[in-house]
Design a protein around this nucleic acid. Structure first.
Length: 429
RNA sequence: GGAAGGGUGGCAGAGCGGACUAAUGCGCACGCCUCGAAAGCGUGUGAGGUGAAAGCCUCCGGGGGUUCGAAUCCCCCCCCUUCCGCCA
């Protein structure tokens, strides 16, 4: 969440910043008013509370002095004050809760560097690699769902039989390829990023910390019986590893990488991209994550984008980097770069990575701070996350890009060590 | 799933209804001592809210309750340790 003090002291600036991403100024003004009311209510309650404390102390003193009559009389006063305190407390807590709720629903302030925009079409293409479009052959113009069936790599029908539509089931070489991609990415990142294998089901508090709850409840799978949530990204558990903690500045930046399954209900996208792997409820992904000081964050953001790009280059896929405009940046982020891969079979740019700088938005929600080396009180850390990469769409792009005239598929040489040396998926028959 | 014991400041650990304003130790910071250091001695050391400040308030795993007053008593929940059961 954003800093309530900023809302209080400079409502104008917050209103203006959030307006860039389409938040109604009235919402901010309403929050500022709630804050004023809450502080007044808390002040009033605290005053009465102090009275209760003083009076009860006097009861104890009178008791010890043996003055029972005085003790009783003061106890009566204290009881009356106590009742008043209860009433005021209810008011104060209600007011504070209203502020907290409003704050939880408000998105992060966009970075001044993020381009303005009203929608997807206003995202800025920062670069494309390679710049010149490769010459695609007719053999590459076959969608991956057809290739998957032809070569026995992907069985969406049986996936649907088990779990409903949009739950892919990979087979044979197709299954091995998913596993290879995860290993390849984790090995690539473990020079600087500690490998983590977190739980994939988490508590409500863990989902709230990243901003996935309460606003986006519809997007997540929930196991009601145990009140657990299936993670939509490893960013969720990784952010909560240090939830509620005070870190040492010398520990920062703290960099983590994790390969997990990710679960998304895709509630808002029903009926779109229903074929193949373009949009699925469960997919594997390797995530990069970092806790940092505010100063370290910009360089980290760049290096995480660079890492995702490096993997795409090694995989030989054409990609472009989008600097997301204010309308398209995720709720918790201040700045986001998306990476899209071109896939000739479906003739589309597919989003395969999203790298975000969340400033202190998540750290406030999760109460993660660090002790500055220069002394002074603990400060909120910054969090950054990025996919490197999401495999369902990469899988599709690799299979479509690698298809040859005889129907076989060639995979990039970098994967050879993870595919028992076999980088050609033989043609059917 | 059953039984027992526990969860207190950066850490260890006391406190079990009224000076808890949380003892004590360790650690840390500063000072004295020293050529310098160690040791020793002294002083100081949590987080947050609100306020111009003095101050006031909150926090002893979480939530609820009893009481004039709760770290302390009661109820529910979570987590940890040990033992038993079950299990990939």
């Amino acid at each position: 969440m954003i800093d309530i003090r900023l809302v209080r002291d400079d409502t104008e600036a917050v209103t203006a910043a959030l307006a860039r991403r389409g938040v109604d100024p009235a919402e901010v003004v309403r929050l500022a008013a709630l804050d004023v009311a809450a502080r007044a209510a808390v002040g009033e309650r605290d005053e009465v509370r102090a009275t209760v404390k003083v009076l009860s102390k006097q009861v104890g003193e009178a008791r010890r002095a043996g003055d029972t009559a005085l003790a009783e009389r003061v106890a009566d006063d204290s009881r009356a004050a106590g009742n008043r305190e209860r009433e005021l407390n209810a008011v104060a807590e209600g007011a504070q809760d209203a502020v907290r709720q409003a704050l939880l629903y408000l998105p992060n302030l966009p970075s001044p560097d993020a381009p303005d925009g009203a929608g997807e079409s206003d995202n800025v293409v920062a670069r494309t690699w390679p710049e010149a479009d490769p010459a695609y052959t007719e053999a590459q113009r076959v969608p991956h769902w057809d290739i998957g069936v032809e070569l026995g790599l992907l069985d969406m029908e049986r996936g649907a039989k088990l779990s409903g539509s949009m739950f892919p089931l990979y087979r044979g070489f197709g299954a091995r390829l998913v596993r290879a991609l995860t290993s390849f990415a984790l090995d690539s990142h473990s020079d600087e990023f500690e490998e983590v294998r977190p739980p994939t089901m988490v508590l409500t508090a863990t989902m709230v910390s990243t901003g996935h709850l309460p606003k986006f409840e519809e997007e997540a799978y929930h196991l009601e019986r145990d009140d657990l949530w299936a993670i939509p990204t490893a960013e969720v558990p990784l952010t909560s590893m240090w939830r509620g903690d005070v870190m040492e500045e010398s520990d920062l930046p703290l960099k983590l990488t994790a390969g997990t399954a990710c679960f998304r209900r895709e509630a808002g996208a029903a009926g779109r991209d229903t074929r193949g792997l373009l949009r699925v409820h469960e997919f594997d992904k390797v995530e990069l994550f970092a806790y940092s000081t505010p100063d370290q964050a910009p360089a980290l953001l760049e290096s995480m984008v660079a890492r995702a790009e490096a993997l795409l280059r090694q995989l030989g896929l054409q990609y472009r980097v989008l600097d997301l405009c204010t309308a398209d940046i995720g709720n918790s982020a201040a700045r986001t770069f998306d990476l899209e891969v071109y896939s000739p079979g479906v003739d589309q740019w597919l989003e395969v990575s999203s790298v975000s700088w969340c400033t202190d938005y998540q750290a406030r929600r999760a109460n993660i701070r660090y002790r500055p080396e220069s002394g002074g009180s603990p400060q909120f850390v910054h969090t950054l996350n990025g996919s490197a990469l999401a495999w369902a769409r990469i899988w599709a792009a690799l299979v479509e890009n690698g298809r040859r005239a005889d129907g076989s598929v060639v995979l990039p040489e970098v994967l050879a060590p993870y595919l028992r040396g076999q980088t050609v998926i033989p043609a059917a028959g």
